[in-house]
Design a protein around this nucleic acid. Structure first.
Lengths: 153, 153
DNA sequence: ACCTTGACTTTGATTGACTTTAACTTATTA
DNA sequence: TAATAAGTTAAAGTCAATCAAAGTCAAGGT
């Protein structure tokens, strides 16, 4: 215990709990200097403890007035389902499997018809520049991003 | 997060919303002194947040009695809508412009909050690990596919 | 294995010096 | 006197420098 990363993790989770919203906005440099560490340490904590796999979404903006926003996904069974789905998708997925999964989501009424069309259009768009293996990875990446995004609420 | 540019953006959008017309006319120097910033800051906001990519047209006149007119393009003529938007997107689009366009679609209530989040997640997903040389082109491709999927009907 | 650090990169915002344009005012000329 | 040219002032435009973040990555530490 009490390595800096754990302390920062606890600190951020406390902030999230105290927040009236389901998210917090921090400044990387502020948090870093509060903990007397280099700024990139914050990135380390974010990627190791606040990934989508852990039920968080991290957004940010650089430049003057930049910030990092940490969104906590509500942990109802729907979300668990989707986290499970993300796990299922893994690093790579075929076109057919992706479409199948999207159809499932729609049958379960987790997404609307329009959202299904939208997601399928992404999966099926002709990415003529890419090699096949990269294509499967790209699909997985995009699909997970999309599934996560529709839940974030 | 209270950088001046964001505040100016909000201010102008509010003016546009309150306006009875589909445009507003401002004086650069007035707005600048209202926000206590240099006049060219207004230009920065206009080019980064009110580009045609974002669905606005900016016209102006210099000299005595000069002004800047910001026209909000109605994105609502269903028939040519998809074609027009795809045209706007072109072969290549920056991350910022893509997000701006998606925001416009939502403001115009052509897409829902969830659909917006979904689309943004695609645009913002971290593709950097896959070695794709042409991010801007890929973005354009995906965005056009999504717009078409969700708006054609 | 996980954590910590720091050099380097990328993105975004702010500023100010300089340029261009348009309207107004005054002087000059047919 | 009316038309035109020249000068003055009041805008807006451009661009490059600088500042202010956050991101990446790899090397080293525990």
């Amino acid at each position: 215990m009490s390595n800096i990363s754990d302390l920062i993790e606890q600190y951020l989770k406390k902030l999230l709990e105290e927040s009236l919203e389901d998210y917090i906005e921090i400044q990387r440099s502020k948090v870093a200097s509060y903990f007397n560490c280099v700024p990139s340490q914050i990135n380390y904590v974010l990627t190791t403890r606040f990934s989508t796999g852990h039920g968080y979404i991290v957004e940010s903006r650089r430049g003057g007035g930049g910030f990092i926003r940490i969104v906590k996904l509500p942990l109802d069974h729907r979300v668990n389902l989707v986290l499970g789905i993300c796990n299922m998708i893994g690093e790579s997925i075929s076109r057919a499997d992706a479409i199948g999964l999207i159809n499932r989501l729609q049958e379960e009424e987790l997404i609307t018809q329009r959202e299904k069309r939208l997601m399928c259009s992404v999966i099926e768009s002709k990415l003529q520049y890419l090699e096949i293996p990269v294509h499967n990875q790209l699909r997985a990446l995009l699909l997970k991003a999309m599934v996560t995004a529709v839940l974030k609420e």
